[in-house]
Structure formats: structure tokens, C-alpha cells
Design a protein around this nucleic acid. Structure first.
Lengths: 205, 205
DNA sequence: ACCTAATGAACGAACGATCGTTCATTATCA
DNA sequence: TGATAATGAACGATCGTTCGTTCATTAGGT
């Protein structure tokens, strides 16, 4: 007989430890590849206790995505700050660096998104991606200062989306496939090259 | 009592039917979310018979990835043809269209890649992404005609990779998250906009 | 041309392990 | 004391795999 873990060690800190453990396991092994017993063990908590905090295993997963989403869209995040402060498209490097920091910070979140896509047909997160373009439009409108000056016929929201997604994709690929130097360059070089291409294009001038 | 499936109906066609069924289920439910019984039922084959063709469930998965890989890198695929024929960077639209066709054709493959990332830590496919830059360099060298003429300081292989990956990412996202019109435009418009940006850049001229 | 032995695909019951979840019980705090 | 957090045994279901068996086909000897 083991003495139960301290009750009031830190509020209901066990809930957080369960979530933390679940996040790590889900992103490394997927949802169906992770058992509740593994989660309990990693969290240092009994199996049954999990069900005092979450009704089902899927509820744990959904809670994780919700918590991450809330933090991700917080105005204090690097990317949002750059959205507000940068004079797009003059400082694309800043967008690239911020994207890198976001992927670093929320890489686990993004991996859980892929888990959702693979094992739940994206049912928990697909709504995030509807109206994405409108959200970029809103960001640009809410930003102080004049509208971005771009080449004729280029929509600012679409352009910004293209830039940010390219950076996200680059950093995510490096993380997903565990390949250092996909482009055979350092990250800062890649950011520089991307930025140059986005600003001036590929054609000789 | 069921009559056994005809033996010599078509060689050992059941192996292919098992693989086909497994591909559909794995990409829709993930590896651990799919049971061998489901695969057997969908393939119209007995449970035990699966193990006459594959030693383990994971071997099925690995076989799928290998078969897809072989077909994907076949010279007859749309993207490879464009690699050989297009005067990069003048015909970026063709790269975009070919990327779209590749994602359409190999979308299942790409989803299985994500399954591998999520549930196997990318162990079956990570090798594909090491030396990616070198492979682009090789493609450009093996291509007939003069080297691409780009803006100063831009490496052709890295540039081509950036373009192709951007298109792939766009088409994959639309497929993964089942969102029609991520950019609020038709696909051809997106290809056009991307191409314009890649050629001339975002800044006004 | 016939008989026979060998082959391997096909079947579904069965195995042991593990799954998500429930439950009765105990410990801890307000 | 009452409420809640914690425990781990237990439950029924399902998992991947193995097993003994059937059977159509084929190869080889005569």
C-alpha cells in the first residue's frame, strides 16, 4: 500500500501534471499510441485519478488543444507583436524570426494539430483554418499606421499569409522530420534568403 | 459458411487489396487507430490471411511507404517532367500546377508521412529529407539547357526548393485541414499570385 | 496420362496482453 | 463531518498475433 500523493501539494497541480505528461506522450506517440496508464505513470499519478480530472482520454486531448490555442493567440506572443509593430513588407526578417520563435514555443501544439489531423480527421482544429484569410485582413486593419505598400495587384493579407506560412512551414519541417539544415544553410541564412526573395523576387534586376 | 475467395482470381491480388485497404484506413485513422480486423474486413480477406502476406502490421505500413516512394520518384510524374522541361524561374506557374497535381496524386502518401511523423517519430521517412538540398542541386545540374538566371546571391537549388515547397505546403494544407480556399481565392489565382511574388517580389516597382 | 506429395493462400477460433473506463475504498483538507 | 482527491484492483472489450486446419493448385515420378 502506497501513501497517496500529497493532496494539496499545489492546488490541483496534478491536473496540470497529467496534461503535461499527456502532451509529451501524445505528440511523440500519437493519441491511440498512448495509453492512459502511460500518462498516469509519467504524471506520477494513479490511473484512476485521471478520471477525477477528465471524463475521457479524448477530453484530455481536446483540453490540451484548447489551452494551447488560447496561449497561442495571446497578444503577448512574438508573432502578434511583430504583426502590430512591423512595417510589412519592409521587415520580413522579423516575421521570419518571430515565426521561428513561435514554432519553437508552440512546436508541441503544432504536432498535436497533426495528431488531430491524422487520428481525428482534424475535427478539433479544422475550424481554426476557416476564415484564415479574413483573420489576416483583420490583423492588418487593426494595425496602426498606413496600409502596406505592395506591388500592384498583390493583396496585403494574402501576401502576409504567404510569407508567414512559408516561414512556419520551413521551421515546422525542420522540427517534424528532425532534419537540421533542410536547405543546407543556417536558419538565419534561410530567413535572409526567403526575405530577399519575398521582397525583390527571383528574377535578375 | 463463406466460400473462400478464389485463389487464382488474379495472381496474389489479395496482397494488393490488403495494401489498398490499409492505406485508406491508415491515412484516415492513423496506424494505432486502425486494427488488423478492420483492414481484413475492408480488404474482403480473413484476419489470418493478412499474416500470410505480411509478418506484422508495421510491415504493412512500411511496405506502403516504400511503394509510394518508388512511384513518387518515378520520372513519369508531373513534377519531375516540369523539373526537366521548365525554364526556371520563368515558368513558376508550371511548377505550381505540377505541385498541385502531385499533391492530388500523392495526397495519401503525404498523409501517411504525417502518420509516420506522429506515430513513429518519422523513422520510416526521415531519411527522405536528409540531403534534400543536394537532390535539388542534382536535378538542376541534370537538366538540359543553361543554368537558371536569378537575382544575384540567390542559389538556384535553394530557390527552386523554396518555390516547390511553398506550393506543396499550400496544397497540402488545403487537403489536410479540408478547407476550401485557405487564401480566399481559387487555386489558379493562388498559383498566379505566388508566381508573381516569387518572380518580382512584394515591393512596389 | 495418372497418382501423389508438396505448396502456400485462405480461414476463423483462440491466446495472452493491453486497452479505456468503472468502482469501492482510503486519505486529506475545509 | 462532508466533500473531494487519490488509489489500484477489476471489468469487459479489443488488440496484434498465432495456430491448426482446409483446399485449390502445381511439380514430379511412374
Amino acid at each position: 500500500m502506497k501513501t497517496p500523493a500529497r493532496r494539496a501539494e499545489k492546488g490541483s497541480g496534478n491536473r496540470d501534471r497529467i496534461l503535461k505528461a499527456a502532451a509529451v506522450l501524445f505528440r511523440r506517440q500519437g493519441f491511440h499510441g498512448t495509453s492512459t496508464r502511460e500518462i498516469a505513470e509519467k504524471a506520477g499519478v494513479s490511473l484512476g485519478n485521471i478520471y477525477n480530472h477528465f471524463p475521457t482520454k479524448e477530453a484530455m486531448f481536446a483540453t490540451l488543444l484548447k489551452d494551447y490555442e488560447e496561449e497561442y493567440f495571446s497578444p503577448s506572443q512574438p508573432l502578434h507583436k511583430v504583426f502590430m509593430s512591423t512595417d510589412f513588407p519592409d521587415n520580413i526578417e522579423a516575421l521570419g524570426a518571430a515565426s521561428g520563435r513561435m514554432v519553437e514555443k508552440f512546436g508541441d501544439y503544432m504536432l498535436l494539430m497533426y495528431v488531430d489531423v491524422v487520428e481525428f480527421d482534424a475535427k478539433h482544429i479544422s475550424r481554426l483554418f476557416t476564415g484564415m484569410r479574413d483573420r489576416y485582413t483583420a490583423v492588418l486593419r487593426s494595425r496602426p499606421g498606413p496600409a502596406p505598400r505592395l506591388a500592384e495587384g498583390i493583396d496585403p493579407a494574402a501576401a502576409m499569409m504567404m510569407v508567414v506560412w512559408s516561414f512556419f512551414n520551413y521551421f515546422t519541417m525542420e522540427r517534424l522530420f528532425r532534419v537540421k539544415g533542410l536547405y543546407g544553410m543556417e536558419e538565419t541564412e534561410v530567413i535572409g534568403m526567403f526575405s530577399e526573395v519575398f521582397r525583390r523576387g527571383l528574377l535578375p534586376r
